[in-house]
């Protein structure tokens, strides 16, 4: 699609899983409202799911003036082929100028499918979005080279302009139940046939909240000494209502499942507070957590690289500090 064919609509892909909306969607609606105002465009959400109409209202309360709703049993959980084919069809019909999604496991599988099918540009894992006032185009900023460098990217000729946005970087849109909007139920015009079948959904993280969703993450490293000592990390996470993270070394030793791993080969997280206990802070770990707002590091070794990124660095024995902290927080 060329620039002059596009309509003044900004689309937010309203990612849901088994009926619950991913919180990154609210962050996208927050940023989307600002962009829409600058472009004098309409902010719209696109919701695919099964029996999910109720949730459309919530998207309007968070700022969407239009919700495109596509309901089918087939959309209960994400599958790359039918999700993208339906969205391609929708983009062709309504011609938005911008499409944004979360840089989640789903978003980073779906959005490239969509972009390639639409033959347009996509910028991955953005941490900032702005509008170029003069050209009225989307200016997208993202980290690359493992966070060593930032790049600003535009897609000037083709539409829609597409980006996935890192979770927890932008602030959520506020709820206003008085807000009005339009819900448009759309019938898919492509056959709902998938070559992919989900057989089972297994949850490994149940003790605490999800890692990428968490406001507070307590992570443990090699300094814990043995698997059993992760109990201490879990206890602190529980007191803080946070999630449990882990360094690569601990996951390699099977102390915790891979789904907890933070870092280059694990997850990139961006919580309000990241507490690193007994983690030395190899560069591969730092790239996964250094954009956290506050970093608290507890480590015996005053020279540990983790202290270079720490907001508060505590040089000391975690087996002494952490139990004291738990006790103090419980008071």
């Amino acid at each position: 699609m060329n620039t002059n064919e596009a309509n003044k609509e900004i689309w937010i892909f309203a990612e849901q899983n088994a009926g619950s909306i991913h919180s990154v969607v609210y962050e996208l609606l927050g940023k989307g409202s600002e962009l829409a105002e600058q472009l004098q465009a309409k902010l719209c959400a696109v919701l695919l799911g099964h029996k999910i109409k109720e949730k459309a209202k919530g998207l309007i309360w968070r700022g969407a003036s239009k919700v495109y709703l596509i309901e089918s049993e087939e959309f209960l959980n994400y599958r790359s082929d039918i999700y993208s084919s339906v969205l391609v069809d929708l983009v062709h019909r309504y011609k938005p100028s911008v499409v944004l999604g979360g840089a989640t496991l789903t978003g980073r599988s779906l959005m490239p499918r969509l972009a390639a099918a639409l033959k347009t540009g996509l910028t991955a894992d953005c941490t900032a979005l702005e509008i170029d006032d003069e050209k009225k185009i989307l200016v997208q900023t993202r980290p690359a080279f493992g966070g060593n460098i930032m790049a600003t990217i535009v897609c000037s000729e083709r539409r829609p302009q597409m980006a996935t946005v890192r979770h927890k970087v932008m602030s959520e849109a506020e709820v206003d139940e008085k807000r009005k909007g339009e819900i448009i139920s759309v019938q898919p015009q492509t056959p709902l046939f998938s070559d992919i079948k989900i057989e089972d959904i297994v949850k490994e993280i149940d003790k605490t909240v999800r890692l990428t969703e968490a406001d507070i993450i307590v992570s443990g490293g090699r300094g814990l000494g043995k698997k059993e000592n992760f109990g201490l990390i879990e206890e602190l996470a529980l007191v803080l209502k946070g999630a449990v993270g882990a360094s690569r070394a601990t996951v390699d030793n099977d102390w915790l499942p891979y789904s907890h791993q933070v870092g280059q080969t694990g997850k990139t997280v961006c919580p309000k507070v990241y507490i690193a206990c007994g983690i030395s802070g190899q560069i591969q770990h730092l790239v996964g957590m250094q954009s956290s707002k506050i970093i608290i590091a507890i480590n015996k070794d005053a020279e540990a690289p983790i202290f270079k990124v720490a907001t508060y660095g505590i040089v000391g024995d975690l087996f002494k500090i952490v139990p004291m902290l738990i006790k103090e927080l419980k008071r």
Partner: peptide, 18 residues
């Protein structure tokens, strides 16, 4: 379709309290 407009170093974290 995409063009890189600018490349820059990420903002340094402020020095923390030890």
């Amino acid at each position: 379709p995409t063009q890189v407009k600018r490349i820059f170093s990420p903002p340094q974290r402020e020095k923390g309290k030890i």
